[in-house]
Design a protein around this nucleic acid. Structure first.
Lengths: 146, 146
DNA sequence: TGTTATTAGGACGACTTACTCTGAAACAAC
DNA sequence: GTTGTTTCAGAGTAAGTCGTCCTAATAACA
């Protein structure tokens, strides 16, 4: 299928980004998130729970409860979210699937792909959520979160 | 899951690469391929059939039958195989899954990811099978195909 | 012509991912 | 304490992907 992130991971990123747009510490209910982001309610609930257990988010039950970032937005990178949901196997597996492919025994796209993978990794760790949220507030971007 | 190619696509690439190492026009049976590449027999059969219907491979039944490249190896690119199996949707979908994301309305990684995607595309179209097969023959690479 | 080696193609099962449902637990407000 | 709102937890459903099996078609060859 040639994808990069799983659906779950996409939703996780969108959710965290939405929370980052809120005043720090403010709790947001799944209902609000699900409505604004157009993601199935229970599915998103599962994903947020998962992010909460890894510490990326905090949660509170009851009325006025909901989810919020577990630490300052600028300390959360895209990679943190990807790793929590999808894992980071893609970093060390041969892109063509050759089991024998390694540094000493490289397949024909090993070095090229390796370079690109490093760039992707750099993008993931250098992009923090605070920065991304700021960019999304700009008038150029009027999307799901407002 | 953070992958790039599906399992099917990986197998397809490995299979075509193996065929490219053979003298031109020589038929190779699934049995040989499956044994050398360690891919489930019937699953590989399906994949090769699919590649044959798109013209990338030719096939012949009966004894002495099998599969062979449908055109010169240097005219087949990685992209041809990927497109035949996985399609090329990844080229124009937002990597974060925002349905509203587009050139006019870019998400916060839109341009960065776009650049990387272009690089990946360039890699896929510039790598032809003949070249890759040559590299695999070098002593540095002694893998599945020999 | 019959046998054997091979692909073609459809039906099927297992497994994974995406998504739903339900009931319980926690909590705040009254 | 009661009530309503929310997350938590786990099981259940649906769809897609991975992989198997079986039968038919085809070609070589004795």
């Amino acid at each position: 299928m040639s994808i990069f992130f799983s659906r779950q991971c996409e939703y996780a990123i969108q959710g965290v980004l939405y929370l980052a747009l809120k005043p720090q510490g403010e709790m947001t209910s799944i209902k609000e998130l699900t409505k604004r982001l157009d993601i199935p309610y229970h599915f998103l609930a599962k994903i947020l729970q998962r992010l909460a257990t890894t510490g990326l988010l905090t949660s509170a039950k009851g009325p006025t409860g909901g989810f919020a970032l577990g630490k300052p937005a600028k300390e959360i990178t895209l990679f943190d979210i990807v790793e929590a949901i999808d894992g980071s196997d893609f970093m060390d597996k041969c892109v063509l699937g050759f089991p024998e492919c390694s540094g000493k025994n490289p397949c024909s796209v090993h070095s090229t792909w390796g370079r690109m993978r490093d760039e992707i990794y750099q993008m993931l760790v250098s992009k923090n959520i605070a920065e991304m949220a700021r960019e999304m507030k700009k008038p150029e971007y009027r999307a799901a979160a407002g």
